[in-house]
Design a protein around this nucleic acid. Structure first.
Lengths: 178, 178
DNA sequence: CCGAACATGTAAGCCGTTACATGATTTA
DNA sequence: TAAATCATGTAACGGCTTACATGTTCGG
């Protein structure tokens, strides 16, 4: 249940319409919590119904741009959620399921496919590093340090997967039989 | 849609009943793709209906233990799935959403909570390292090398989160105001 | 033979994905 | 003013979680 709180955070940083939010999600937040615009609109509707945000527009304002901003109750809810104990998130990754199937089965995964993964991770890593260079090069306060940490986590994640993909490529090249 | 294929892999490694599978999932596979027993039974039902596995027992064999094994069609389906192109999985992590909210809001996350995460990751890391020592200490063939890679990925993942949690603890200790 | 533990299963509900639909705004 | 695009929204569906339910086996 992170999306509503991700939206609240984003709206606190800057009041926005649904489409602007969707765009910001695609550029930034989607790096650690993706959501398509349909789901964003749905959640915004729920948040407004719950009195946590407001847009000052009729219910079915189809087509007309809305300007959402966070109400005090919304800020309070975000604080409450943050103070709440949370669970460490378990790893959940399809690639590992595929590797395990590959181990049980013999050759099936194509090197071509793993190389595609590799490229995707390289690209994202490049994007993160560029962002680090342009936005986090100077001395930083607490807020910037926290946002930098998020970025560094993303970088660590991509580096990890680069190394996993490279090892996988080596292993897949090996002959199946002993 | 990884669960059915994870089940097929597990059943190829060793034919099992639903409860045995659930137990193996909790011990091993849950480390990268968790599923509760209810969902496992549901998926086993679907797989049997699709003719990919068989248990040689009536439909609602409530209570009576079943012995599932993979049929040739199941092996074929697993091969097909593996050969299929797959998407690199995006990072999706609630902790990052929380960090971002913390940046936007000021102090709310408790150090106590982050320390709980830290401990959980330490524990899992210890478990993985122990498993590495007992099961992957000798020279290995292709299959074992693949399974070792999966384990090493888990280790890398836990190490990454240890370092993130430690950095987060440092930052949270800092005063909010500039 | 009775209760506890085991093995399997059903039901409701939320989150997220995909495909599609409708009202406004811009632009040629 | 018609077409393209933008902004918002609906509908259908599947995976996953949680809580609960039913039948079987086993230990005393």
């Amino acid at each position: 249940m992170s999306l509503p709180h991700a939206l609240l955070s984003a709206l606190i940083e800057k009041p926005s319409s649904g489409s602007e939010l969707a765009e910001r999600f695609d550029r930034l937040i989607a790096n650690y919590w993706h959501a398509p615009h349909q789901q964003i609109y749905k959640e915004l509707g729920k948040l407004e119904a719950a009195g946590l945000i407001e847009s000052g527009a009729p219910q079915d304002g189809r087509g007309r741009k809305r300007a959402y901003k966070v109400l005090p109750a919304g800020k309070k809810e975000l604080k409450r959620w943050l103070a709440e104990p949370s669970e460490p998130q378990a790893l959940r990754d399809e690639f590992m399921v595929r590797l395990r199937a590959e181990a049980a089965l013999g050759t099936s995964i194509t090197a071509k496919d793993v190389k595609r993964h590799l490229q995707a991770h390289e690209q994202k890593l490049k994007f993160f590093r560029e962002m680090e260079r342009t936005e986090f090069s100077c001395i930083e306060g607490r807020e910037m340090a926290l946002r930098h940490l998020i970025l560094k986590a993303g970088i660590g994640y991509e580096e990890l997967w680069l190394s996993i993909c490279n090892s996988a490529l080596e292993l897949l090249a090996k002959p199946t039989a002993e």
